[in-house]
């Protein structure tokens, strides 16, 4: 039996907060408007920062599945990574400089050098949540969620829309993660027909990495 398509969209609520963790000291001396042109809006790039997943007993991500993420522009893309326990994470370095990613508290992901163009992998068996940090690029921060009942991970578009493909009918919990934070959680039921969800609204206030 073929699963159904589940569509949805994310809508960011207005907020003046950046939502990022406060660094030890101010990150700059000067951050002022250029005085020529108005500023571009600061928005969460959903594709880069968010993860929308379905949790439930229905369909499960295949065991041993390989998920690949990239280090690009000095940071992990996406910066929120959700995996099912038992899967493998492959981290590719697309930058021109080396990185040393590590996850404090997670065995097997210590700070080892990943030179430009190369990659490193880690097999994740234990459910949990860990920050991913880079010893060489201090601003590069991501978060890794390893869930035991992960059913599906949505594909995100730059405009915030997402889609799950081939979702078996059943009851699921839709969750939106941004970094370490769970922005929203919603119960959905997938039937034998495609499902379009109401827009999921989130704010940056609840986020953090």
């Amino acid at each position: 039996m073929r699963g159904q398509l589940v569509l949805g969209s994310l809508r960011e609520a207005a907020s003046g907060q950046t939502g990022k963790a406060k660094p030890p000291r101010a990150a700059f001396n000067w951050e002022v408007e250029n005085g020529v042109k108005e500023l571009a809006p600061t928005r969460v790039v959903a594709q880069r920062e968010l993860a929308v997943v379905l949790l439930g007993a229905g369909k499960a991500e295949s065991p041993g599945q390989l998920t690949e993420i990239a280090v690009s522009g000095g940071a992990l893309l996406p910066s929120t990574v959700v995996l099912r326990a038992g899967s493998t994470l492959r981290i590719r370095n697309d930058d021109e400089i080396g990185h040393e990613l590590f996850a404090p508290g997670l065995d097997g992901l210590s700070a080892e050098a990943t030179s430009p163009g190369s990659a490193r992998s880690i097999h994740l068996t234990k459910p949990g949540s860990w920050p991913l940090l880079d010893r060489l690029a201090s601003h590069a921060r991501a978060h890794l969620h390893v869930l035991s009942d992960l059913a599906a991970v949505a594909k995100l578009e730059p405009n915030g829309s997402f889609s799950f493909s081939d979702v078996p009918a059943g009851k699921y919990t839709l969750k939106v993660f941004r970094g370490a934070s769970e922005l929203t959680s919603k119960e959905i039921e997938v039937t034998d027909k495609p499902l379009t969800l109401d827009p999921v609204t989130f704010t940056q206030d609840k986020s953090g990495s």
Partner: peptide, 12 residues
């Protein structure tokens, strides 16, 4: 985004 900004970074 239009800001004039300074920073101290570690690069390579």
């Amino acid at each position: 985004k239009g800001y004039v900004r300074d920073d101290v970074i570690v690069y390579d």
